[in-house]
Computed example of a mutant assay.
Amino acid sequence: MNSPRKAILLMNLGSPDSTSVKDLRTYLTEFLMDERVIDKPRWLRSLLVKGIIVPFRAPKSAKAYQSIWTEEGSPLIVLTKQLQSAVQEQVSYPVSICMRYGNPSPMTAMQELSKQYPSLEEVVLVPLYPHYAWSSYETAVVYALHQHKHGGFNFKMTVVPPFYEEPAYIDALAESMRPYLSQPYDLMIFSYHGIPERHITKRHPAGTHNLSTSDQCCSEAKYQRYCYRHQVIRTTHLVAEKLGIPREKYTLSFQSRLGRDPWLQPYTAKSLGEWPGQGYKKAVIACPAFVSDCLETIEEIGEEGRELFLHAGGESFTLIPCLNTHPDWVKTLVGLLDKAAPAELEDDSFEG
């Protein structure tokens, strides 16, 4: 590549550097001290995270990561690097990666790009989150923009917006799932990463969101743009329609709950223990909030979820892999680059 003017920066969630308890403490502290993940005053967040949550969770999380760790390292990091290579084959400008938590940081990635390609004029940030949420898309973008601003770089940064209803994304997601639906099944489950209900209602009047139904959330476009719940419902219905799944044969739920506050419901873990008793013995499950398989898909759903379902009387449980490096997804991602624009955020504050 001779003096490219543009580069691509794929940004994923991140992973601990190893499965040691020490590295899990470091990773979990950075993750949970994010004000967009636990939106409490800093002093209270620090007390909860450093004094209670991390000391308790780090050893358990270390064991969980050990169950999925590969020879190459964390599945999420390995798969993101594979996606980087797949995208690089399709474009003529450099493609790099960074993580919201852990390594490599956006600053490290941008410094390397700037050093290697001093003529860069634009870096296109691609947050690998289909849906908009405080604790995923927004925190990733705000963090990257903060590091860009304070890095003294000569290039500008543009950002790919959430793509939860982009036709090409829906097509790619549907095609990645289609082979797993050729077998008989009773229920197709769309399990999304959960968030506290207050993340939905805090910004906008509570009356604009209906949290009691799985078919809709908010009707006004100005709220839908930043409403995670609306967006996952929209993705679910579009994919189900594309695949021709009858309404009575699919559902959506939310996983990865933390703490005792009410989170978006229904809860995946609780429901997995109930569905067999309701006649749904053969389940197929996908996790569309993630584009790369990780702890939350492989271990939480693929191992813990499977055990819950089968122990409750289920007969078969099939976890559909994330998009990872599916050819249709790679093609979709390259197409999304054309939608990059200056970031438009309701809240661009950053608490470092």
Rank of each mutant, 00 (worst) to 15 (best):
Y101I: 01
R100V: 04
Y65G: 02
Y65W: 13
M107Q: 09
M99F: 11
V78C: 08
A86P: 10
S105G: 01
T70N: 08
I77T: 01
L76Y: 02
Q66Y: 02
V95W: 07
V87R: 01
P75A: 14
P104I: 11
K81T: 11
T108F: 07
Y93C: 13
Y101P: 00
Q88F: 12
E71M: 12
E72V: 08
V95C: 01
N103L: 11
Q88C: 10
Q84D: 09
T108A: 13
S85C: 12
P104C: 07
N103A: 14
S92G: 05
Y93Q: 05
E89D: 11
I97K: 00
P94V: 13
T108L: 15
Y101F: 14
S85Y: 05
C98W: 09
S92Y: 04
K81L: 13
E72A: 15
C98L: 12
V95L: 02
P106L: 02
Q66A: 07
S92Q: 10
G102K: 04
E89K: 15
G73E: 07
I77L: 10
S96W: 15
N103K: 14
S105N: 04
I68K: 01
M107F: 05
S85M: 12
S67K: 07
I68E: 13
T70L: 15
P106R: 03
S92P: 03
V87F: 04
K81F: 08
Q88N: 03
R100S: 13
V91A: 00
P104L: 02
S74N: 08
S96M: 11
P106C: 09
L79I: 10
E71N: 00
M107I: 10
Q90R: 13
S105F: 11
L76G: 11
P94F: 13
M99Y: 04
Y93S: 00
M99V: 07
P75K: 01
S74F: 08
Q90V: 09
L76F: 11
P75Q: 03
S105V: 10
G73R: 04
Y101M: 03
G73I: 14
K63E: 01
I77R: 14
A86I: 10
W69P: 05
E71H: 05
A64R: 00
K81C: 08
P106A: 07
E72R: 15
Q82G: 07
